[in-house]
């Protein structure tokens, strides 16, 4: 660094003023101009978060919202060059600083995460699936999944109810959030626990439906597996219709 210590310190103090509103006495500056910088920088952060988290912005009081924005701007060392990713850092900050407890809004972390995931899935880089075939045997062939998805777990069903109502229904909620390959729309699918099991076996373990059913049969000792088979086939059909599943892997052996 070729800055003198003094020049470095001046830049530090200018940034500190903008972020915290403290120590406005900076050598060789005009107060009115400095005030504009703080206003402009804070507005940038506030506008970014208002756009990213419209529901949270509505649910929180004005004082709570301003507290989050001020604390985040003052204390968080923002890492991303890409402003559209800053809301994720905001969510992490709010979670880490336990504002859900401080504000007595236990759903706050889930709500911010839910709103962020919609942005992420909408905007994230395109991901190509492995080579696949459109047609195949649903029981015997491995299924290819649309790779542009996130599977999230929520404690409060902020995707189903208004927040005050969601508070009364705490539990385990699994939500598949994916980008429709034809029109880029972000869609949400509420998955019950059994379907999460199916989904993970199909996606992570690359098992066929027959293999999954065999595994369940062996593990549970069920003599009549038909009900499970009907359930999984309906699930798979729904996933195909919704373009979460998009075909069959080309590497299958049958």
């Amino acid at each position: 660094m070729l800055y003198s210590k003094e020049t470095y310190k001046i830049e530090q103090r200018l940034a500190e003023w903008c972020r915290t509103g403290k120590n406005i006495d900076i050598k060789g500056t005009k107060k009115e101009g400095l005030k504009q910088y703080r206003r402009l920088l804070r507005n940038n952060i506030n506008n970014t978060m208002e756009q990213a988290f419209p529901i949270a912005n509505e649910v929180l009081t004005e004082k709570e919202w301003d507290t989050l924005i001020d604390d985040f701007f003052a204390n968080h060392k923002a890492q991303t060059n890409h402003v559209w990713k800053l809301p994720f850092e905001f969510y992490q900050f709010v979670q880490k600083q336990s504002y859900a407890i401080k504000f007595n809004k236990p759903f706050l972390n889930d709500l911010l995460y839910f709103e962020w995931i919609e942005i992420e899935v909408h905007t994230m880089a395109d991901q190509s699936p492995e080579p696949y075939k459109k047609d195949g045997d649903v029981n015997k062939n491995k299924i290819e999944v649309n790779p542009e998805y996130r599977l999230i777990k929520l404690k409060f069903p902020v995707h189903l109810y208004a927040t005050e109502e969601a508070k009364k229904h705490s539990g385990n909620y699994f939500l598949l959030v994916y980008r429709h390959p034809d029109n880029f729309e972000v869609r949400f699918v509420d998955l019950p626990a059994l379907h999460i099991l199916f989904f993970e076996k199909i996606v992570n373990e690359e098992m066929t439906i027959s293999e999954i059913l065999k595994e369940i049969e062996d593990a549970s000792g069920l003599e009549n597996i038909e009900a499970v088979e009907k359930n999984i086939l309906e699930f798979v059909e729904t996933m195909f219709n919704q373009k979460v599943f998009i075909g069959y892997k080309q590497t299958y052996q049958n």
Binding site: T7, I10, E11, Q12, L14, A15, C18, R19, G28, Y37, L40, L41, N44, I45, T48, H76, K77, A78, Q79, T80, N81, V83, L86
Partner: peptide, 12 residues
């Protein structure tokens, strides 16, 4: 100081 500010501040 390892923190983005998302606006343009003047250099002395």
């Amino acid at each position: 100081d390892n923190a983005h500010l998302y606006d343009l501040l003047p250099i002395p």
